[in-house]
Write a protein that binds this DNA or RNA. Sequence first.
DNA 1: TATAAACTAGTCACAATCGACTATATACCT
DNA 2: AGGTATATAGTCGATTGTGACTAGTTTATA
Lengths: 214, 214
Amino acid sequence: MASKRKVSNPLALAVMALLYERPMHPYEMVSTMRERGKHESVRLRYSSLYSVVGVLEREGLIVARETVRDGRRPERTIYEITGAGREEFLTWLRELLREPVKEYTQFAAGLSFLPGLPPEEAVALLEERVRRLEAETVELRSRLDTAAEQFNLPRLFLVESEHELMLREAELGWVRGIVEEIEAGKLGSLSEWRSLHSERDQLSAAGGGEEKDV
Amino acid sequence: MASKRKVSNPLALAVMALLYERPMHPYEMVSTMRERGKHESVRLRYSSLYSVVGVLEREGLIVARETVRDGRRPERTIYEITGAGREEFLTWLRELLREPVKEYTQFAAGLSFLPGLPPEEAVALLEERVRRLEAETVELRSRLDTAAEQFNLPRLFLVESEHELMLREAELGWVRGIVEEIEAGKLGSLSEWRSLHSERDQLSAAGGGEEKDV
DNA sequence: TATAAACTAGTCACAATCGACTATATACCT
DNA sequence: AGGTATATAGTCGATTGTGACTAGTTTATA
């Protein structure tokens, strides 16, 4: 039922998933996630990690087992998951898979204000997006293929990458279609659209000036 | 080049877009966005709005024009956009349309830890997701159709909804496919997958107990 | 005509987040 | 032998973002 959890950062899910396997210290979590490519699907920053680990400990989902020091390096605290942590991990994971949640993407925000640019410019920008998406999908696909082959991993451990690739390809096809539809005037009359833009706009689009006209 | 901007919350883009049209006070921004359905594509909370408006003002992208009070209600501050604000709005909008950015979705996080559940449960959860996505896409599509008809809006003003619907439908198709592939053992051997799960897991999956075994 | 909803219009304290920074160890190159 | 790049292992300050809360106004309703 999508209740609010005490730790909502998905990085916390990753931490619990890793400690579900075996105890480790934060830095090792980072290297493990990187090795497995999970940092491509869960945003990972050191600063967020240490903060998330702190909250998980405070909430009793993980505990510090021991603190070791290797030479004069900073000391490392090894954490392990608790029973409550295992429960929480499974409950959360089930919820994420079962319930679609609304996400706000940057591109959707941009699209919302598309009429803010004249149609010709919109088309040019979206065509540039198409080019970038093409490059990106090629790159993603080849990374996916070599990852699967080289380490001989079952697809199970890479589904999230297949998902990402699918989304990018869907977006690519859609943007291509929209560009054509704009040009064909199917989103609305091009002259009406153009008329939303006065000459002042052209000025501001052209010069990157230092105007201060409030 | 995706440089870091002083205000990065997309709500700030919406504020500038609205003030680009005409001056208004924050509460009116909310009602306008709601009328136009833009709150479906840009996350909108009062608390974030006032905070974002504050930052925009501090950065000189908008200015308070006047403060009016109607009866004994809290006073309303009417803002207008500055020249710098117009520049920033256009630059940001262009960037959002031109450059695909990596977004981390909740579902991708869930998928990353799919092996954390036994295959039968994974299938059941994903089938439930399919049902929910079906309902959601039907709902989205009908909202889109009635919005277009009832207000006789050109598609231009609803592209972001078409985009959202497209993404949901793409996800729906993909999840259906993955469910079949899991069942067919195409993501990896089902017995190997099952063997990742000991009997202890079954216990913790069954009872919602109060165990405290650290 | 009391009273409950729903609308109007915000404030505030706290928690989450992230960029920038510190500091040692080891491997590699010249 | 000296330099530099990379890996190890984290801390800290400042900013952002949000849930919970306040409080008056209008409209419906029993």
